[in-house]
């Protein structure tokens, strides 16, 4: 609509602009407050020591975030590696294998799975999954439990995005494939997956963001020992869990250091948004 607003509309327009500006400014406010709170420790201690310090003992002035960073990266990497094929194959099941009624039912199920809160997943992991892993290899609360719970949690994200991007594939592609006599699996590998590539990448990025940011579930099943894990059965602590655990009693530089890890998380999310943006640009111009 490019009609010029009448003079009576200026009130509405400026009210809306103010509301929009507030909504848009929240992210900026978040970053500003994180930086303000993180600044003391960054000035006194410097960025380098977050990597080079011997350990994470903020009370004694040691601020090594690396074990937590490894925890986050390994839990994220493992769950994304497992959830991505499972999610994409789930969407393929919906679109190309299941009869229509079953596909609708399955889609609804995945939507429900997406709606279950993280604390319930964490609780289930704690009372069901952790004892099972404990029987396999004590102590049970471990990187493996974290990966398993995260996989279940992010699977709906990739499955629903993949399903949506499969729906957008022009039906002429599929008709062409059918008329060439391609098998169902041949059509999927040769035509469906390449055609839906950018949508699938977006899905992977979304699930990665969710895996990085997840707090409660990993806090409940990972054991929260600050260490770089050497096996799947070692307990780990992620950056997010670290904030949730220590924020309650942290003071001074310790508190500041937690805000530094908050900034690291924000940075990771911003990076993912930029990558997603780049992919969608490529989709349009590439």
């Amino acid at each position: 609509m490019s009609l010029k607003p009448q003079s009576a509309d200026w009130l509405l327009l400026w009210t809306l602009r103010c509301l929009g500006a507030i909504a848009g400014a929240i992210v900026i406010a978040i970053v500003i407050f994180l930086v303000l709170e993180a600044l003391p420790v960054l000035q006194q201690v410097g960025i380098g020591r977050f990597v080079t310090d011997p350990s994470w003992h903020p009370a004694e002035g040691f601020y090594n975030l690396m074990p937590m960073l490894w925890g986050t990266l390994l839990a994220m990497g493992g769950s994304v590696l497992i959830a991505t094929p499972l999610g994409i194959l789930s969407a393929i099941f919906c679109q190309y294998y299941a009869p229509k009624w079953l596909a609708n039912l399955y889609r609804r199920l995945i939507e429900l799975l997406a709606g279950i809160p993280s604390v319930v997943y964490g609780f289930w992991g704690l009372v069901v999954l952790v004892p099972l892993i404990n029987r396999l290899h004590p102590p049970g609360t471990s990187l493996l439990a974290g990966i398993a719970i995260l996989t279940i949690m992010i699977l709906p994200t990739i499955a629903l995005t993949a399903d949506a991007s499969f729906t957008k594939i022009p039906s002429s592609y599929l008709l062409g494939a059918a008329s060439l006599g391609l098998s169902r699996w041949g059509t999927i590998c040769g035509i469906v997956l390449p055609a839906a590539k950018s949508g699938l990448f977006t899905g992977v990025i979304l699930e990665t963001g969710r895996a990085i940011g997840e707090t409660m579930a990993v806090l409940m099943v990972c054991g929260n020992v600050v260490q770089t894990p050497h096996s799947l059965f070692d307990p780990i602590r992620t950056l997010t869990a670290n904030i949730a655990l220590e924020m309650a009693y942290a003071l001074g530089n310790h508190r500041s250091a937690l805000f530094v890890s908050g900034l690291v998380l924000m940075g990771a999310i911003a990076l993912l948004v930029v990558i997603a943006e780049a992919i969608s640009q490529e989709e349009i111009y590439g």
Binding site: V27, I30, L36, G209, T215, I243, M247, A270
Partner: peptide, 28 residues
């Protein structure tokens, strides 16, 4: 530019981990 800016910032906001919202809420 205004619309694009607001939209972009909402995209980032949608991805912000909930614990970071907790930090922000605690401070602000």
């Amino acid at each position: 530019w205004f619309g694009r800016l607001v939209r972009r910032s909402l995209d980032v906001l949608a991805g912000v981990p909930s614990i970071v919202f907790g930090l922000f809420g605690n401070v602000f």
